[in-house]
Structures are given as structure tokens and as C-alpha cells.
Amino acid sequence: MILKILTVAVFAFLYVPIIYLVFSSFYDDGFTFRNYEAILNDRNVTTAFFNSLNVAILSTLISVILGTLAAYSFKKRGHFLESLFYPPIVIPEITEAVALLLFFKMLEFPLGYYSVLTGHIAFNVAFVYVVVYARASSIEKSIEEASYTLGANEFQTFTKVVLPLLMPGIVAASLIAFTLSWDNFIKTAFTTGPGFNTLPLLIWSQAARGVVSPSINALASLMLLISIVLSYLYVRISIREE
């Protein structure tokens, strides 16, 4: 009984702030959409939105291709190089962020869209690799062998047999990669330059000063909604796979 009350309290603690945030985004002397209208008409917000989307989609696409090829190739033969894919996942973000910043500074690479994108791909490759690898190692080798002995070459085997079987893993990995990139803040903050803003950076620029504004509430609620939709898709896919 005490356990139950405690559990309920913990869940309340985790979710009340989020629910409160969503409620207050609709509130301004009574129920209103005004906050949402405000952010939709704000050029800064729309630019940042498309920047975020652009980086998230491209970094997902590239990292999915690189990570999937790597996962497939290591699945065929265990290799010590495989362990190179784990540090990007366990190393705290801030150390990775400063490393990227120094790297770009040293190369005198202009900070902005490309530096942000490059950084996002670097950690996404590792996440895609781990997720797709798990899927790839569940494909029995006899299936590929059957394909070869039936007369298919390596390319046909990959596109007709391996890729369709990897697909659930690739979709899950894409969702994770997209989410990680979409709401990444620290790495973006370190590697961006003047003029390139993303939605998390926009929220940060207000919130770091301790400002809680109705329009930021609305923006945060929108981002929240997107995160929840992505996680819902992910759960749906993993349940269907079981």
C-alpha cells in the first residue's frame, strides 16, 4: 500500500510539470490559442524549426546508411574494430561537444549548419549501429546462405533478403536517431555559429535567463508532442515485432 502511494507520487512528480506546461501553453487569462499563433508567426521560430528539421532528417539519413552498412558487415564477422562504436554512446555529451568545437576551431571550419550536422551524424552513427546490429545478429546465417545457393549474388542477397529483414531495426534506429538529433541541445550549442539556430537553442536562449514565457511554453509543448509521437511510433514498432 505504501509502495503504491509512493509509486503514484513518483509518477505524479514526473508528469505534473509536463502536464502543467501543456496547460499553461493554452492559458492567458483563460483558454486561448494565442500563444501558438504567436510562435507560428514568429520568423525566428519558423526558421529554427526548419533548421532543426533539416539537421534531424539529414543526419538520420546519413547515419542510417553508414550505421546499417557497418552493422551488416560486422554481423558477418566479429572484429575488434566493432568496439569503436560504443564510446560515442557512453561518453557524456559535453565532452564530445567540446571536442567537436576544438576540432572545428583547429581546422578553422566555419561554425554553423555544416558543423552542427557533422556533429549530429557522429553520435547518430553509433546509435544506429547498435540498434541495427542487434537486429542483424538475429538473422540466421542459413538464410543468407540459402539465398547464395539459390543463385543470388551478394548485392541481390543484400537488397532482397538482408535489407527487408533488417528493416524493423532500421526504422527503430531512424526514430532514435531523429529524436536524438531533433532535440539535441548541448552539441548543437557548442558547434553552432552565428545565424544558425535550432528550436532547442531558441528555448535555451530564453530559459537560461530564467524566463518562463507563454510563447516558449507553447513551443516547448509542440516539441513535447513531437517527442511523444516519435516514442509512440517506436513502441508500436517494437511491440509489433514481438
Partner: peptide, 9 residues
Amino acid sequence: YIPQNYGLF
């Protein structure tokens, strides 16, 4: 070649 677990797609 028909492997033991048949290797069906």
C-alpha cells in the same frame, strides 16, 4: 542447399 532450419525468407 537446404539448411537444417530450411533458411526460408
